[in-house]
Design a protein around this nucleic acid. Sequence first.
DNA 1: AAATCGGGGTC
DNA 2: GACCCAGATTT
Length: 363
Amino acid sequence: MKQELLNDFDITGFQESLVSWFLENQRELPWRESRDAYRVWVSEIMLQQTRVETVIPYYQAFMREFPTAEALAEAEEERILKAWEGLGYYSRVRNLQSAVREVVEKYQGRVPDTRKEISSLKGVGPYTAGAILSIAYGKPEPAVDGNVMRVLSRVFIVEEDIAKPATRKIFETILYDLISKEDPSAFNQGLMELGALICTPTSPGCLLCPVRAYCRANQEGIQSQLPIKSKKKKQTMKHMAAVVVKNQAGEILIEKRPEKGLLARLWQFPNIEVTDQVNHQIALSDFLEKEFDLKIEVQNEVQKVEHVFSHLIWNITVYEAVVINETKKRSGRTFKWVKRNEIEEYAFPVSHQKIIQQTLFVN
DNA sequence: AAATCGGGGTC
DNA sequence: GACCCAGATTT
């Protein structure tokens, strides 16, 4: 059944204009040097909600360290988290390794080439499945990301809210008819490249657009009013107190974050949530004694860190402390004493990298 | 369907 | 500030 929005639409003309524009104008990017499915896969995971310019150095370093699916499958978790440090959405790399291990074991290292199989892999959703299938295997499968929704909402004047999950399916339905069957890879990448370079969120460059003649929003002069996207609610503030504890040997106490949730399994300095009422030094001292069996003397505040996440804001007050007495009881927490020059071996969230910089490497 | 999950660039 | 980014998973 043909999508109604495609009535009276020159599908072939659109395909040819878009594909030829892409082949002529595409950027040179490291993941475009090969169609190896593993390399395409890694790039697509890194590019989720992350800008091309940000990804490039991470991608190059990642491929040097983990050049094959087998290499990534055998890597230690500490190493993959360190390779991802600063990129954000850290479950991406843990899911990627888990999925790569499944590919090595179940598919003999060969990334599957059907939507059903590839979609069953951890971290591979509708977009990434379509991207790998089209780019690595040349299959005519839609790959709908933010760029594609913006471009197609303008070309076809789709006024559904692109913030709603259901809206993505509208574009997938269009694309099964619209996608080039001759070069699905160039077509999908062309849509995204167009969104990145020409059909930008604000002030799209319609005068330079290869598919301007096919764009209904441009014909109506309403391209800047599309797409429709509802606003997300703003972040909630969370006040924290963190402490950099040193022992007599000058080593520093770091703690591994929980297995699940925010910044899972990354390292951090011990910290607690605080309210305006509590004395930070006393609260930290009590916390270290209760959770780490450590008597400490908390000294003066040394730093304030404000860190903005998608859905919350951390306002961290940082203190220094020295160990008074270390007992030998067991603790429920995973922690470690590290030397100053060993700290770079561990993956920290950016919020705590700020603490490392300010507190440990000033002077 | 809404919330969670990072971080940085842009206007 | 608010928005956006080659989104997926959990609730």
